[in-house]
Write a protein that binds this DNA or RNA. Sequence first.
DNA 1: ACTAAACTATATTTC
DNA 2: ATAGTTTAGT
Length: 772
Amino acid sequence: MCLSMDFLEGLNPRQKEAVAHVEGPLLVLAGAGSGKTRVITHRMAHLMAAHRVPGWAILAVTFTNKASGEMRDRVRTLITGNVAGADSLPTVATFHSFCVRLLRREGAPLAEVRPGFTPLFSIYDDDDQLSILKSVYRQLGLDEKFLAYRAALSRISHAKSHKETPEDLARNATDPVSTRLAVIYERYQTRLLESNALDFDDLLLEAVRLLAHDRLTREKLNRRYEFLMVDEYQDTNRSQYELMRLLSSERGNVAVVGDEDQSIYGWRGANIRNILDFERDFPGAKTIRLEQNYRSTKNILEAASAVVANNTERIGKWLWTESGAGEKVTLYEAPDAENEALWIADTIEAHLSRNPQDRAAVLYRTNAQSRQIEEALRRYGRKYVVVGGFSFYQRAEVKDVVAYLKALVSPQDSISLLRVINTPARGIGRTTVEQIEQYGLAHGLSLWAALERMLEERAFPARAEAALSGFHRMMSEMATGVESRPIAETLRAVLENTGYRTMLEEEGTQEAQGRLGNLDELLNAAVDASERGETVRDFLDHAALVSDADSVDERAPVSLLTMHNAKGLEFPVVFIAGLEEGLFPHSRSLDSEMGMEEERRLCYVGMTRAEKRLYVSWARSRRRYGGGQPEASIRSRFLQEVPPALLEKARGQRGQVDLYAEQHMVRETARKNLYTGKTYNSVENIRQFFAGGAQAAAPGAAKPAAVPHVVPRPVTPIRKKTGVGSTIEHVKYGRGTILKLEGSGEDAKVTVNFPGYGLKKLVAKYAGIKIE
DNA sequence: ACTAAACTATATTTC
DNA sequence: ATAGTTTAGT
């Protein structure tokens, strides 16, 4: 009476074959839009239903939190009620979150090879990495002219992921820069060790190290995970490859899904050879090609395929589709970048007014390109969402407050402490801080330990001493019991006790108000996290591992994003802007064939995002930055690679004059209608960063209401009694109606609409609202 | 010792 | 355009 459903039904023969595969290595070459997520999820369900594999014995690894959240949801939907006796779900995680979990739970043995390591390690993001590097440079008396921070970091990262120690680097160095780099690398690594911190590379590396050296842990995991699946295999790097091998070493049941034509992260260490050489690395591997595309029209598919066909590093596929030819790819040649942006906005306007249900995306090579397009859209009063760029969690105020949390949880975390020691300004100046750093360096102490020792020794002048002992006391007080206290509680204490909130309130600028809004939203996220039972650790892990791609709201009518961020997404209407030599393909990739092929793959990724309509554009002139002179540009070679028969010039070729007139008209309308377009960094998105849990996305978790409409608005405490549906008085923003009330008492969350200011979600306790 | 204004060198993509 | 750094002023 088993209600096992047939998960092979409704699949094409190739997909069926992939889903039905059970034992042994499997390579699924899944072209763009060929239903690879479907294959992965169905395979998991099929294993559970037809082969009685328990969910916990399956591990699937994806690249973004968003992808793993979606995959988890889809598997859940598939098996719920359809698979008898399925009481556990497969583990779906990103490589990074999997490693973090592993290291926190089973990482203790690493202390043997990594002195001072504890499972309470901090995670350092690139900002933190940068601070370390700056400090190392200072220590070594170097400056950026010698070697740019970014360059140094990427070389360190490269060395790390190839398991090269500073000594290896020094030995193989053939030039003075490399010799010096070895020293920088050595110091950098020492700092991480001293701070008990891991950078992104370390998360993978140390997980590999743990599994390679600790037989028990390896065997335990191998026993547990009978089946391993890896999504986006073309973007795995060496550590990820090794991790995968270690996890599947006993059974060899590893299924990888990928597309060599979509390998676009070579610069981040991804090794395209992983996918190209899979059959060699895993003898007896079965290879299945998914070549039927279900996404795009024939014209779009052929155009994209024609471009990528110019690459040599391919296994080779030819995608086909049963769908109709559709429209041709529209090409627009703009006189300059502003005109290009206006044309895009204009065309979006025209398209969406005819097809209001369609979603459009504007893709570009560099984030800097978004500005002009945003401006153009704003002139039309068209709502849009920008993905990436300056995202929420990278904002200074969020990073500051998060740094406080990190410092409280891990006193050894000197980088975080350094970040907050004089933020807000509390009279602990640069010289004082440098003294403490020096002392720490000399005595092998963390910043915090050095500070304590120096206070004991009364090593500071009176003024500094007062400031420092005050700081020390404040931090110690907040740190006690931090692991057991609700996150929001600690967060609130940080905001109040450190004077951070006061600092922003006193600033009084529009910008400061926005920052306050962001912090309120962070507080909301913290409350949500507590409700999900997360510890401060979990919260911080989450904050460290969210990515821009996780914040994509597919329901947005208009999205602006880089082609990198667009991977895995699809849109009825797609624009690709800035198809110019030097921009796309980017100038940094011009000189190497490898780089050029990656750019071409990026182009392929961009084009294949489109379902119905693809527009490509370039500008004859563009200025590199602000005051610079406009420079003439040459149309991208990728445009030449599209067969002319598939291209058509933008109809009517709206000239400058039309656009110019329109621009004025539109400006007027926008002025009258009160601009509502801007959603960039909107606080509404913030919850998503934290909500789509790396660990536990709640089933059918309510996503924040569609697309944000409003610029972040200041919120000051509301001191008035409130109830559901009633009106409350806001100190600055007047009356607002409570639209929604979640929970009760001081933990209640209310959604308030302030006319003219928009929706605001508040937590009663922290906003000073009393719910009767 | 800190702040604010002036100056200058600066942009690829990001887990 | 903007972030980061230097300089002058408090």
